[in-house]
Design a protein around this nucleic acid. Sequence first.
DNA 1: TTCTACTTTTGTAATGATTTCAAAAGTGAA
DNA 2: TTCACTTTTGAAATCATTACAAAAGTAGAA
Lengths: 144, 144
Amino acid sequence: MEVKNKIDETGHERLVRCGIRPSVQRLAVMNYLMENRVHPTVDKIFSDLYPSMPTLSRTTVYNTLKLLVESGAAIMLTIDEKNTRFDADTKPHTHFMCNKCGAVIDLNINPPILRGNYIDECEILNSELFLYGYCPECANKNKN
Amino acid sequence: MEVKNKIDETGHERLVRCGIRPSVQRLAVMNYLMENRVHPTVDKIFSDLYPSMPTLSRTTVYNTLKLLVESGAAIMLTIDEKNTRFDADTKPHTHFMCNKCGAVIDLNINPPILRGNYIDECEILNSELFLYGYCPECANKNKN
DNA sequence: TTCTACTTTTGTAATGATTTCAAAAGTGAA
DNA sequence: TTCACTTTTGAAATCATTACAAAAGTAGAA
């Protein structure tokens, strides 16, 4: 079985590879994303980093995440209607969101890779497969 | 070839079938969605209906769309990061958004139907396949 | 080292979508 | 017609995100 979420780069290496100058703040956000694979929201990232970086600004987190996504160092997920979420895993994979607790989880099924195809004359560049339902914990609670 | 977006119900029938009392405003929103299959945003729906219903409130459009989605009379799409979009077609189908002009289009490919399956112990209730790229018009413009 | 130009961060204010809420209007049955 | 209930309305509040300009940081040249 494939190792899930394997990362063979440090945050610093990822930034440099993607052409991003590694400032303290950018490194903190990049490392946070690589170490916390729960698809965190902006607010989660900010409030987790803030205690150890009390001068950190929310705007910087927004700026940095935008830069990471534009440079291909992370991806943005719109699976959660309420908040944008971010993921350091840039390889195509499938996401699941629990309707009850809101957790966003990576699933071990491959999404259809359609990049480069034309469907109904539309040129496909990328695809997202989002699944919704109950996560293992909430599915169990539901049975009782 | 399958007829795309075939509708065999009136807006009134759809509301009743879904257990929604058909007020003037609800009927207007339901009919608008059934007649305008472009996955409109809340604001688009409101501003198109407003001229012929000058007492209509934006809040009513929000309330009504929420009710339609909860009752299964429409679906909500998070394909567009900026605005929630709505679709009267509740059958599983695939959506495409143009990276350039922002148009959201139905595609003639079937998304994987996973309802009822368990994947990585997650109970799947529904799925969304979102594709991004260039729509026919924008793909052509790109070539010049 | 100091100067200078450039990049990045910061905090506040603005924006825009959505929700809250309570009053007003509408509806339907007795 | 009254009464209880549902729905609509519009204003205010909320919340995520963006704009912006000042402050801070950085790095190379003199």
